[in-house]
Simulated assay, not measured.
Amino acid sequence: MKPHYINRIKEVYPDLEIEKAEVNDIGQNNDVLIVNDSLIFRFPKYQAGIDNMLKETDILQKLKADKHIPAPVPIYQSFEPLELGNVFTGYRMIEGSPLSGEEFRECADDLILKLRSLSLVNVLIRLHAFPVDEFAEGPAAIHDEYKDLYNRIQVNLYPFMRHDAQENVSKLFEDFFNRIDDFYFTSALIHGDFGASNLLWNSKTFELAGIIDFGESGPGDPAYDFAGILASYGYDFFKRCIDNYHNDDPGMEKRAVFYQKTFALQEALHGVENGDSTAFASGMRGYM
């Protein structure tokens, strides 16, 4: 796998000297090649990932106009031909490290938590304020999107679930559909996968140093990004961030909680639909 990726990069960028390369293939949607300890190259694992990478590259090129959003800037790219193994993007490595939920929960220093929360929220405010009309793709109708998700879960995951787990999932979605009027929101540009593995932190300033993997980014519900915070760092830090966000959307917390409860199911569904047994087992852990 590594020689093919290296050869492809050299084919497109023959002047780039590659002295060292390391593959990180634990990502769900992309294989990652770390080159010379300074460059990140990403190759989609699935055909759908090619479309996401095209969209992501367009978004990142526009976001670089805002220097306060610490997102990667694509400096290498290959989209001809649009085939797995040939498509890639590359950018300079962002200094910083992800922090686990456990590390957040173990932090008892209120000042550090405040700095992290304000840094995170300030970036989200700028991201969510970015002009949505910059992008051709509009947000999916929330009811239709989650009706489709629910149908796919019933067909593909229910056969593997305990009966009580099926009942709990059905209640989760039926309650959502019954209170759909609570789910009105102003569409914004969202990251779409705003979880711990995609957030890089400065260990000295305790501020957000970078956000990576914009493959799910696009117009959507700002609450979805807060759902990623909830899933990664727990309710207390999530609540701190929601309170610091200062908007006039009273339903944001409820929506974020609902979205977060679907994440494991979405991971399991990804596993079924893409033949990823690891994702399936991880997502179904609490349902079998």
Rank of each mutant, 00 (worst) to 15 (best):
V121R: 06
T278Y: 07
R42L: 06
A165G: 10
F214M: 00
Q61I: 05
T186E: 11
T89F: 09
I242H: 10
L63K: 12
D15E: 13
K114S: 15
Y235P: 06
V132T: 13
K239C: 11
G90Y: 00
A279T: 05
E102L: 05
L118W: 08
A188C: 12
A264P: 08
I212P: 02
D213W: 03
E137Y: 13
D31I: 06
Y150C: 05
A141F: 11
Q166H: 03
F280I: 05
P14D: 12
I94T: 12
P159D: 08
I50N: 09
L157P: 00
I180E: 08
I40Y: 11
R92I: 01
V155Y: 14
Y13M: 01
I18N: 04
D221L: 01
L200V: 03
N29V: 03
Q166D: 04
I6F: 04
G218K: 00
E137C: 06
I26D: 14
F176W: 03
A141D: 15
G228D: 09
D110H: 13
R285H: 06
E56I: 07
G101P: 10
D182Y: 06
Y13S: 04
Y158S: 10
I69E: 00
V132H: 03
W201F: 12
F183R: 02
L113C: 03
P14Q: 01
V12W: 06
Q77G: 14
H68Q: 14
E134F: 13
A223F: 00
V123I: 14
D182H: 15
D243P: 01
E216C: 11
C107I: 08
N202S: 04
P14F: 08
F41L: 11
R126P: 07
L16T: 08
L82C: 13
F258P: 00
Q61W: 02
D66N: 13
I75L: 14
K67E: 15
F263I: 12
T262M: 00
G85W: 12
D58W: 00
Q266A: 01
P98L: 12
V123L: 07
F79V: 02
S197E: 06
G283V: 08
L149S: 07
L118H: 14
F258I: 01
F183P: 03
K147Q: 12
I26N: 10
E103L: 06
S97N: 11
L115R: 04
D182L: 14
I69G: 05
S277G: 13
F214G: 02
G192C: 09
S277Y: 09
